[in-house]
Simulated assay, not measured.
Amino acid sequence: MLRIAVQAKGRLFEETMNLLAESDIKLSPSKRTLLVQSSNFPVEVLFLRDDDIPQSVATGVADIGIVGENEYAEKKEDAEIIKRLGFSKCRLSLAMPKDIDYPGVSWFHGKKIATSYPVILGDYLKAHGVNSEIHVITGSVEVAPGIGLADAIFDIVSSGSTLVSNRLREVEVVMKSEALLIGNKNLSAEKKAILDELLFRMHAVETAEDKKYVLMNAPKDRLEDIIAVLPGMKSPTVMPLAQEGWCSLHTVLDEKCFWEIIGKLKSMGAEGILVLPIEKMIP
């Protein structure tokens, strides 16, 4: 049985549970307890505070965990990064009152900075030769300058709307963060085998993201031209149609270039273009 530590609530919790569900890890929909076992896969999920996950994995309380890179960097626990998951992206930034001119990072010298991430901030300030007073706050860090508790803040930024509402502006991005799958360095062979299967499923889900399965009817005399503009994974599937001079062509397209490619296909005579979502892709 592989035990995975997961954030108990918040955006990272929701996206983690979606990933597990898409990987066909079935968990009880009933009221959540601290520890829940999957009904169809040898995994049990341990729900913790996000800042407790790195230590729980490093000490073996959990075998693996999904945690924000910001918490992993802050805690500096002896756990290894297994996989970057690509969701829950944000950044840790220094912000200051928007009405004050900002000459550079030297502005923070001698200032009081409120943060929930004193380790990351301390390392950054030391690297830049800046001596500031770090005031540790848990909770709503962004209100600190407005109530006179600090001159500036160091906190997570996603959209930046919270900064704007508190009359702050982001001036230095210290690090970028995303969800990480981290692991204990001493997993048994049995647990490593379970982890490998879980990673295989996660990779299949990840590969299918933003991909579309496209079917179309294409004139045979334009087939080479049509294939030349398709950036599919491999050579597309081509099958003959009952109508003379036509064939059916199947391929996979990335959504970011989808409309550009579809326009070219139509100009080359492709017809009856059918677009389907892809749930998983097995390499």
Score class of each variant (00 low, 15 high):
Leu20Met: 09
Leu20Gln: 07
Ala21Met: 12
Ala21Phe: 11
Glu22Arg: 14
Asp24His: 00
Ile25Leu: 07
Ile25Phe: 12
Ile25Ser: 11
Ile25Lys: 09
Lys26Pro: 10
Lys26Thr: 13
Leu27Arg: 12
Leu27Val: 14
Ser28Trp: 01
Ser28Ile: 05
Ser28Thr: 04
Pro29His: 10
Pro29Gly: 15
Ser30Glu: 13
Ser30Met: 13
Ser30Pro: 03
Ser30Leu: 15
Ser30Arg: 04
Lys31Ile: 04
Lys31Ser: 10
Arg32Ser: 08
Leu34Ile: 14
Leu34Arg: 09
Leu34Glu: 15
Leu35Asp: 13
Val36His: 00
Gln37Arg: 12
Ser38Tyr: 00
Ser39Glu: 07
Asn40Cys: 08
Asn40Asp: 13
Asn40Gly: 12
Phe41Asp: 07
Pro42Phe: 02
Pro42Trp: 03
Val43Tyr: 09
Val43Met: 14
Val43Gly: 04
Val43Lys: 02
Val43Asp: 02
Val43Asn: 06
Val43His: 06
Val45Asp: 13
Leu46Asp: 09
Phe47His: 03
Phe47Met: 12
Phe47Ala: 05
Phe47Glu: 05
Leu48Ala: 05
Arg49Leu: 15
Asp50Ile: 04
Asp51Asn: 15
Asp52Pro: 02
Asp52Asn: 01
Asp52Gln: 08
Ile53Ser: 03
Pro54Ser: 11
Gln55Ile: 08
Gln55Phe: 04
Ser56Phe: 08
Ser56Pro: 11
Ser56Val: 14
Ser56Glu: 13
Val57Thr: 10
Ala58Asn: 02
Ala58Thr: 11
Ala58Lys: 03
Thr59Cys: 06
Gly60Met: 11
Gly60Ala: 11
Gly60Leu: 10
Gly60Glu: 13
Val61Tyr: 03
Val61Asn: 06
Val61Pro: 01
Ala62Thr: 01
Ala62Met: 07
Ala62Asn: 01
Asp63Ile: 01
Asp63Gln: 05
Ile64Ala: 10
